[in-house]
Design a protein around this nucleic acid. Structure first.
Lengths: 333, 333
DNA sequence: CTGTTAGCGCATTCAA
DNA sequence: TTGAATGCGCTAACAG
């Protein structure tokens, strides 16, 4: 099928022969040039060009115990929330020669375990998790594997290892405090059914000092689900003044549905989102939200990983990146 | 730092000893159970449980020449267009034990080459590309590496190897034909500046039989860029009747800006997108678009890869998944 | 059905 | 600064 049947990829052996040096000298010329004479390095590099040599990292990793791979685990790739994190993580790791192996859990603890096992078998130098490790079994396995782990997008009393995140309860409190300041009485919540969204809801309700009518929607949230959620909330509470949403996608849907029903936003219904998605600043009305620097989470995680793999001591293995509320038109009343 | 310093992960050697069989028998019990007696398999599995053994796929891959890894290359993770493809690809490959290694090119040919080299060094059993391989150098390297390649999201006269995609020129023609049928005279284009969006524009203009005023925006396209694009197009052509956009994100932005300027959509301005993003069916007005089954592209690619890796003959290495126009409110006039 | 032998390609010991 | 030997953990061959 392949027209040019592969003429056997060159190995380091071929490079060494072509350069007229020993195998190990060739190896050092490429991997540890400081220890080799300049002339030899040049010979070896010429031989690399001539042979089209590409190092076999499987073999290198087997011996050196450094695979230069990092496992990255997400619930699902389609969760827009995590994309900037993954993108920054991948890019930052690439600058140090690491590549990311992707795993998806589908929000399922059993799948999380199996995907982690598959990862561990690949001997990654570290594992990055969006969110916290769910199952206790998986936590134990990770600990025993000795692989550095970075959990993210959350805080925890007992992280598996390192952590870059923020407090969802505090986010909920902050939004709750903002709502209190506006003196809205009839309030509703449209929330994803995942753990982190529930934590934000908890913080929100605690600060308001009462339970708030809530509609839960399945992940991943979307404009469509936001529209439906508003309908259901209005059924529960026809005179709603304000809605707190667990994502900007939901908030957008709530706004679209509100406008379609002839409600003015924010005059008749104020709406707040979460995540500071790219579109939120440019819709009409623009969407008030909570900004979290997802890309920064990815960059910081990458730096922790690289530092740890270099054997450096990490004096701050848990980083709280915080968040900030952004008031836009959808709540500006 | 890790509280429990790893007590040396168990190897197959440990499992064999615990099970009282030879190394290779343990290997077969796990990897090729059909050839081993039931009693032995049970003994080995018990030993696996007892030791907490996780196979080292680096070592296995080195010997067997099957790494069970597939390289996946995207311009950037944040290009929403490709997410369903990647998600389906990853999930489908996982069912056969393969995992995806991620690479990002940032739409840059040099980076494409370097990321491909990094991939090849990891000995993936196949490489999946969103789009076609850009640089000739990279094409040659891939061919010589002998690694199965699936290009996607496009068609080509001379694919590197396998291909799952569709014709962007035909998409443009189809939308052009649709516009012709509506008898709109004053038409504009808001287009991404990438190769595939340009191909669609070419097809569109060819079918219309003339050049069409165009605003190009940088990737990744967004609602914000759509709003700006409409402004620029109206500067060029104040009495625009219809706009063809290279993505639903752009179309959405164009619509938002149009409504903000007091234009009715579609009565004053008709707008068509591309990609059938999830929100397009639920905005007001809903967005006419071209549907491409991105998830199906991922699934088909995964099946091609798995089949090829099994040594099966691929009788159809190039698959055209086609597309279909979806008329919604934004052009229903 | 099971075991023995021999490497996969490279980097970490050592020694020169 | 360079080289020779050794083995990482596993599996493809062959034998029994």
């Amino acid at each position: 099928m392949n027209p040019v049947s592969a003429p056997k990829p060159a190995t380091l052996h071929d490079v060494a022969k072509a350069a007229g040096v020993s195998l190990i000298t060739a190896s050092r010329a490429l991997g540890n040039p400081g220890v080799v004479s300049k002339a030899t390095i040049e010979k070896v590099q010429a031989a690399v060009e001539a042979t089209g040599y590409i190092p076999n990292r499987l073999a290198g990793g087997l011996k050196s115990k450094r695979s230069l791979m990092v496992g990255g685990i997400v619930p699902a790739l389609s969760v827009a929330q995590f994309l900037p994190t993954l993108e920054a993580l991948t890019a930052e790791l690439a600058t140090s020669g690491y590549q990311l192996i992707l795993g998806q859990t589908s929000y399922d603890a059993a799948q999380e375990e199996s995907v982690l096992d598959a990862m561990i078998g690949r001997q990654p130098d570290a594992i990055f998790m969006t969110g916290l490790v769910q199952s206790q079994k998986a936590r134990d396995r990770l600990r025993r594997s000795g692989i550095p782990v970075v959990e993210s997008w959350d805080l925890s009393d007992r992280p598996v290892d390192m952590l870059v995140g923020f407090s969802h309860v505090k986010v909920g409190s902050a939004v709750g405090g903002y709502f209190l300041g506006k003196r809205w009485k009839r309030i509703g919540i449209a929330s994803g059914d995942d753990h982190r969204a529930r934590m934000r809801r908890d913080g929100f309700q605690t600060t308001l000092g009462r339970e708030v009518p809530t509609v839960f929607v399945p992940a991943p949230s979307s404009l469509e689900l936001g529209r439906r959620a508003l309908g259901e909330l209005l059924d529960k509470e026809p005179k709603l003044q304000a809605i707190c949403c667990s994502s900007d996608q939901l908030a957008h849907g709530v706004i679209v549905e509100a406008l379609a029903r002839g409600l003015r936003v924010p005059q008749d219904l104020a709406v707040c989102g979460f995540g500071n998605a790219d579109f939120g600043a440019h819709t009409v009305p623009s969407i008030s939200t909570v900004h979290v620097d997802g890309a920064e989470i990815g960059r910081l995680a990458a730096r922790l990983i690289v530092a740890r793999c270099k054997g450096e001591v990490i004096d701050q293995p848990v980083i709280d990146v915080g968040f900030r509320m952004i008031e836009r038109q959808s709540t500006a009343i």
